[in-house]
Computed example of a mutant assay.
Amino acid sequence: MVKYQDTALNDIFSALADPTRRALLARLEGEDALSISALAQPFEVSLPAVMKHLNVLSDAGLITREKTGRTVSVRLQAEPMAHAMQWLSRYEHFWAERLDRLAAFVEAAPDTDFGPETANSAKSPKRPKPTAKKAP
């Protein structure tokens, strides 16, 4: 078996897997730099939790930190995301082709209801409700 390891790519996708980290990156997107306290302000998590998220983002190369006096500023470092986008774009044609075929299939299908009721009724037939037994 061939094992393909790209540690940088693994770190990027791992960092982007968490919704809080994605939200932190989104906050940095429109800003030149934010202090850690300003960045953490809208989140309902503790400052140490935010620091752990920032460590993961920093390890993946998605942010940089700069200390000026007692203030640490955080900046978005978007270049590593280009590496992830290159990897994803290799598979884009694969999924686009399959989705196009699925759309053609659905459009060519006769008027059939593919809703959840139809799917559920095909899987499990209706059963009679159990009746309560009276105690002797």
Rank of each mutant, 00 (worst) to 15 (best):
125 P>R: 15
23 A>Y: 08
36 I>S: 01
86 Q>S: 11
52 K>M: 08
86 Q>K: 13
127 R>M: 03
6 D>M: 05
123 K>G: 09
81 M>G: 08
5 Q>S: 13
6 D>H: 13
56 V>F: 00
72 V>W: 07
8 A>Q: 15
70 R>D: 14
80 P>Q: 00
113 D>Y: 04
35 S>L: 01
125 P>K: 15
31 E>Q: 14
7 T>M: 14
12 I>Y: 05
3 K>C: 09
129 K>N: 03
123 K>W: 13
22 R>T: 05
9 L>W: 06
8 A>H: 15
27 R>G: 06
121 S>C: 10
32 D>M: 08
51 M>I: 10
105 F>M: 13
40 A>R: 00
78 A>C: 03
127 R>I: 02
56 V>N: 01
16 L>I: 13
60 A>Q: 02
111 D>W: 05
4 Y>A: 06
69 G>V: 00
102 L>C: 04
21 R>E: 05
87 W>I: 08
9 L>M: 07
3 K>W: 13
106 V>P: 07
4 Y>W: 09
45 V>Y: 03
33 A>D: 04
100 D>P: 05
66 E>M: 01
34 L>V: 02
129 K>I: 07
118 T>C: 08
22 R>C: 08
80 P>T: 01
92 E>S: 13
8 A>W: 14
70 R>C: 06
72 V>G: 05
6 D>A: 11
73 S>T: 07
32 D>L: 05
18 D>N: 10
115 G>W: 13
106 V>I: 11
39 L>P: 09
30 G>F: 01
81 M>I: 10
107 E>W: 04
120 N>I: 15
131 T>Q: 14
55 N>A: 07
9 L>A: 04
34 L>H: 08
51 M>T: 11
108 A>T: 05
130 P>M: 07
61 G>M: 02
105 F>G: 04
91 Y>E: 05
35 S>R: 03
8 A>G: 14
116 P>N: 15
34 L>Y: 06
109 A>P: 10
25 L>D: 02
132 A>N: 07
8 A>C: 08
30 G>I: 02
118 T>Q: 09
74 V>H: 00
119 A>R: 11
25 L>Q: 02
50 V>Q: 02
108 A>G: 06
130 P>Q: 04
8 A>D: 14
23 A>W: 03
12 I>K: 06
36 I>E: 04
61 G>P: 00
99 L>G: 09
100 D>Y: 06
46 S>P: 00
127 R>Q: 07
96 A>T: 11
91 Y>A: 13
67 K>F: 10
75 R>F: 08
59 D>G: 05
112 T>C: 12
3 K>S: 08
16 L>P: 00
74 V>Y: 03
74 V>R: 02
65 R>N: 03
135 A>K: 15
119 A>Y: 05
41 Q>K: 14
134 K>V: 11
61 G>S: 02
25 L>A: 02
120 N>K: 10
35 S>G: 04
98 R>K: 15
3 K>A: 14
29 E>P: 01
112 T>G: 12
78 A>I: 06
45 V>L: 01
48 P>T: 02
98 R>N: 11
102 L>H: 08
102 L>N: 07
22 R>E: 04
29 E>S: 14
32 D>Y: 13
82 A>N: 14
